[in-house]
């Protein structure tokens, strides 16, 4: 295991932020840590990255104990934070060269590696500019590049795309993917459900300081429920009729939305039942504008596990940790 945590606990004053977090991440895989604000995601990352000692529990990262051998851990990890930790007054190249020297790559080694990473992260054109002139996406890329200077075995990304626009997020995702393909183990915290869905091999959902569910994205979705048939009607007055037909193949209770124009019913897999429903709707003259099988989204997973939606608004708030 590249990352192994057992029973991590942390308390700030009267608030127990972590109540025994267990995680394990096999080498070369991505674990997405998902949770609402204040769930304990950042605290977990800070403990694993040796920035914060746990009150109780133990953790090893890249084969070394985070409390006993922090320096050995630090040699093998990269950390990219919620806000891009770069020196605004230095240029992109100077930032990377400085961090490279502090990673003990040597003066020449740091300079060479900085050049490579600027190239790979598409920052060469801005390398000579002070980073205060960089856009949000460029800063995140530089931050990620800085975390990769020493070719870490384990990479911690704490909400790496919070606040970025979609294009920048997708660029960053593909850059993270490249690292994973090269064998790097990644622990990623995020509030974006699609980010976890997109990048993570496995997902751990944290809420109120505990891991309340974990598994592959598919497993989590299955836990929440099976497939559902979604039927959109041209005319809401057909809803009652359509519902009667759909209830014959439903394995649970049906839902309506869109002023009754969209009906959703959970179905057991089986093409026969669906085909039967389709032809019954046609025979009755119900005009259907959309007819689709839908699998639960990460939003459904999140909602059913934590009782909270992973809303986009929540992203603006900073996670309270200290």
């Amino acid at each position: 295991m590249a990352i192994e945590a057992e029973g991590l606990r942390k308390r700030y004053g009267d608030t127990e932020v972590l109540k025994g977090v267990n995680l394990s991440v096999p080498e070369g895989t991505v674990l997405g840590v998902l949770g609402p604000n204040g769930a304990g995601k950042t605290t977990t990352v800070r403990i694993l990255a040796t920035l914060l000692p746990p009150d109780d529990g133990r953790a090893t990262v890249a084969g070394h104990d985070v409390v006993e051998q922090p320096k050995e851990v630090r040699r093998r990890i990269g950390l990219a934070g919620q806000y891009a930790a770069v020196d605004e007054r230095l240029t992109g190249r100077e930032n990377l060269t400085l961090i490279g020297r502090l990673y003990r790559l040597g003066r020449a080694g740091a300079r060479k590696r900085a050049g490579e990473l600027l190239e790979r992260f598409d920052l060469t054109h801005a390398a000579h500019r002070e980073t205060k002139t960089y856009s949000g996406g460029m800063r995140r890329r530089l931050d990620l590049a800085a975390s990769l200077l020493a070719e870490p075995a384990v990479l911690f990304l704490d909400e790496p795309t919070t606040g970025l626009d979609l294009t920048s997020r997708m660029t960053l995702w593909s850059m993270v993917r490249e690292q994973v393909d090269a064998g790097v183990t990644v622990l990623l915290t995020t509030q974006y459900l699609e980010e976890a869905d997109h990048l993570a091999d496995r997902i751990a959902v944290i809420d109120k300081g505990q891991v309340i569910a974990d598994g592959t994205p598919d497993e989590l979705k299955r836990k929440v429920g099976g497939e559902r048939l979604e039927v959109s009607l041209a005319d809401a007055s057909d809803a009652a009729e359509a519902l009667r037909i759909l209830e014959r193949i439903s394995v649970g209770s049906a839902g309506t939305s869109d002023n009754g124009c969209t009906l959703t019913v959970p179905v057991a897999s089986g093409i026969g039942a669906i085909a039967e429903a389709a032809s019954a709707l046609r025979d009755r003259g119900v005009e259907v504008t959309d007819f689709a099988m839908r699998r639960p989204s990460m939003d459904d997973v999140f909602l059913s596990l934590t009782g909270q939606a992973g809303s986009a608004e929540a992203v603006e708030e900073q996670e309270v940790t200290a």
Binding site: G81, Y83, A85, L102
Partner: peptide, 13 residues
Amino acid sequence: KNGLVDRFRSLPM
């Protein structure tokens, strides 16, 4: 404030 201390503290320096 700008998170540089976190970065420095995560380095083997």
